[in-house]
């Protein structure tokens, strides 16, 4: 029983991590059909910005709770600055190109931003554990948990709800649906698709940066942290269906819970789980579990 509760909480905790780091990727893909490798950079820059500012302000004597403000500010600032720059300078000129060309461009952006991190922050790790230390720990079913990780489950739920409200319950969401379905028909119906793309890319960038900024307190923020996130988030998004937020939730939950089960009972399988789930899903549904309708003519 104790182990089952531990598996559930560990699984939910890891699922929320997976969802937080992949939601931005799936949103950008869903609307813009861009597989954004630079997503890893948003994550890394979000993490670096948060860790840098938390360290800086903590050193200046600000209280620990101020770290939460800095996490949010870092995510918004990184997403707005880097997201806007990439969209304006590079992607804007490439929308007419093939998807694979855009993918390569985002990969190039990723490599450049990785090197810029080295130039700006150097090779030594940054730590921002103050927010995590502030929230402390709680004992659940015999296992001591850090409250910060449990808070991340809450953050994942908030992000999921906000996305759902925006997409399913607002005019904005309906306009997005049209652009997702068919960019040209969106244009013909008077939708300013360029503006939609800017907002979407910046929102996706902010979510990617929020992932990094929110995870930063649990990490050693060091060079290369964005690389793994690309692989993980890509796997989650492929399992759930590229471009589907519901799919990202289900994909993250499947991988998170199965992985927690594996780690507790057969740890050798841990590495294998995520790709086993991916392979199994792709065999049954090559488009992923919740792939939104592509521009299929009805």
């Amino acid at each position: 029983m104790q182990t089952i509760v531990a598996v559930l909480i560990d699984g939910l905790s890891y699922s929320s991590y997976l969802f937080i780091v992949s939601v931005g990727l799936t949103i950008i893909f869903g609307v813009m059909k861009i597989l954004n490798v630079a997503h890893g950079s948003f994550y890394a820059w979000g993490a670096y910005a948060a860790a840098y500012f938390i360290g800086l302000f903590h050193g200046m004597g600000f209280p620990h709770w101020f770290g939460f403000v800095l996490i949010a500010v870092s995510a918004v600032a990184v997403g707005a600055i880097i997201g806007l720059a990439i969209e304006r300078i590079i992607l804007r000129k490439m929308y007419e190109h093939e998807e694979v060309h855009i993918l390569l461009a985002t990969f190039g952006v990723f490599l450049i931003l990785e090197d810029v991190i080295l130039l700006v922050f150097g090779v030594n790790p940054y730590f921002a554990y103050q927010p995590m230390a502030l929230l402390g720990s709680v004992k659940i079913a015999g296992v001591t948990r850090d409250v910060y990780s449990l808070t991340l489950i809450g953050l994942a739920i908030v992000i999921a709800l906000a996305c759902w409200l925006c997409l399913a319950r607002s005019k904005w969401g309906k306009i997005l649906k049209v652009v997702i379905f068919d960019r040209e028909i969106g244009l013909a119906m008077g939708i300013n698709v360029n503006a939609v793309y800017v907002y979407t890319f910046v929102a996706g960038a902010m979510l990617g940066a929020l992932g990094g900024a929110a995870i930063a307190p649990t990490l050693s923020v060091s060079p290369g942290i964005g690389i793994d996130v690309i692989v993980l988030s890509f796997a989650v998004v492929v399992i759930g269906g590229m471009g589907s937020i519901a799919g990202a939730i289900i994909g993250a939950l499947m991988v998170g819970l199965l992985r927690a089960t594996a780690v507790h009972f057969v740890p050798e399988l841990e590495l294998f789980v995520i790709f086993a789930v991916m392979a199994a899903v792709l065999m049954v549904r090559p488009e992923g579990l919740f792939a939104p309708a592509r521009a299929r003519r009805i």
């Binding site: 005019k171 306009i175 649906k177 049209v178 379905f181 939708i191 009805i298």
Partner: peptide
């Protein structure tokens, strides 16, 4: 035609009004 299949007829019709 290119209607958005998951949206109702009226939502499809009103798209230009929103945008």
């Amino acid at each position: 035609r290119r209607l958005v299949p998951s949206m109702t007829a009226e939502d499809n019709i009103t798209v230009p009004a929103w945008s």
